[in-house]
Write a protein that binds this DNA or RNA. Structure first.
Lengths: 192, 192
DNA sequence: CGATTTGATCTATCTTAGCAGATCAAGTCG
DNA sequence: CGACTTGATCTGCTAAGATAGATCAAATCG
């Protein structure tokens, strides 16, 4: 299935409704008149690319051009992600798996700070290029964590995982200089 | 990183060039005037959604709206699929090529400090996960550099490349926290 | 070298997106 | 029941996308 005007617009509408936003609320967010949003959603307007991007961003969507051959794979990701609006995934399945396990642990023991730190660590690791050995180390630590029993911030397994993954992250991050904060902040990512 | 007008259009241009189509050939395929394609590719037109879809289809691309949280996963697919236009692999041949060209330039003009900075930038970029669009941008800058003529630190092409690649590196590096310096500094990294 | 191709730029014209609001019917809320 | 919200539709206006070509300089080809 390929996406035409109507399909793209329908995704926008569905996303707006999923977020329980009215057209007026989206109008306020995106800076587009409510009447215009109505016209767009009803197919009465062949909107411009910049407007599409604006509305999409207000709905936490990104516009992507996908080679047709890869469309099924991409649709697979969109389809099997929980509600497509929640749930973070990475393209390293190991990272996604690790985050799931850590999420479960953290959910069951919200007071254990180390679990939150671990989640953050693993997320950051997912932004770096990982070797198979790196992935193995991450998986090993997460496996130990899942077999840990009742977690505690001073539990040796948790402390060991923090140390190991922290060290790994630091090693890899050393290859990338810290990003300076320019006076003009170029990336205005999700500041709503 | 999110896709703006310019990024989307750049993907179209890259796809056209990858298929070795001229603007006139694409015009014939998509039914869009060549002059209009030129204007679009040069950012002189905020094209309509229907036009974007038409051009994309002629280039075997599909337009998809992706929840922002799933963008990394989708980009992962685009990055690692062998069907990708650039033929992406585990290592980035584009980075290797770019470093080669920069090394030649730097070798011929050892006094140009900016070339050393560029080499460092490209190396660091190679440590981050890059999308096809990222690679396109890097290649574009390096191509301009190789056609620059006699380089100078204040040459606009060199300055532009530094700006563009620096900005790209900073955007990507934001996803990775800086590696902290522990009180017990085991490895006193002398950052050159 | 002439012929051809390419991307960019131009003119003129038509169509419509986008905007600012107003207003309406229908539904919901307290 | 009145007040309020919502999505749809309307008017009028401006600016720009899209089109049809023409034309140019630069590059490429045979």
């Amino acid at each position: 299935m390929s996406y035409g005007n109507g399909e793209i617009i329908e995704v926008l509408r569905a996303a707006r409704q999923a977020r329980q936003l009215s057209q007026r609320a989206l109008s306020a967010k995106a800076g587009v008149p409510q009447s215009h949003i109505s016209k767009i959603e009803n197919g009465g307007s062949d909107i411009r690319l910049s407007s599409l991007i604006e509305l999409a961003r207000a709905l936490e969507l990104e516009l992507v051009l996908v080679p047709r051959r890869l469309l099924p794979a991409v649709q697979g990701i969109l389809r099997y992600s929980p509600a497509q609006l929640t749930g973070s995934r990475d393209s390293y399945p190991e990272i996604a798996d690790a985050l799931k396990i850590l999420a479960l642990l953290a959910e069951g023991h919200p007071s254990i700070q180390g679990l939150g730190e671990l989640q953050q660590l693993v997320r950051e690791l997912g932004n770096l290029r990982l070797s198979p050995l790196d992935l193995t180390r991450i998986r090993t630590q997460v496996t130990k964590l899942s077999e840990m029993g009742v977690p505690a911030d001073d539990h040796p397994v948790l402390a060991g995982a923090l140390r190991t993954l922290s060290s790994l992250r630091n090693q890899l991050a050393h290859a990338v200089s810290p990003a300076p904060k320019p006076a003009y902040s170029l990336d205005d990512d999700d500041d709503d």
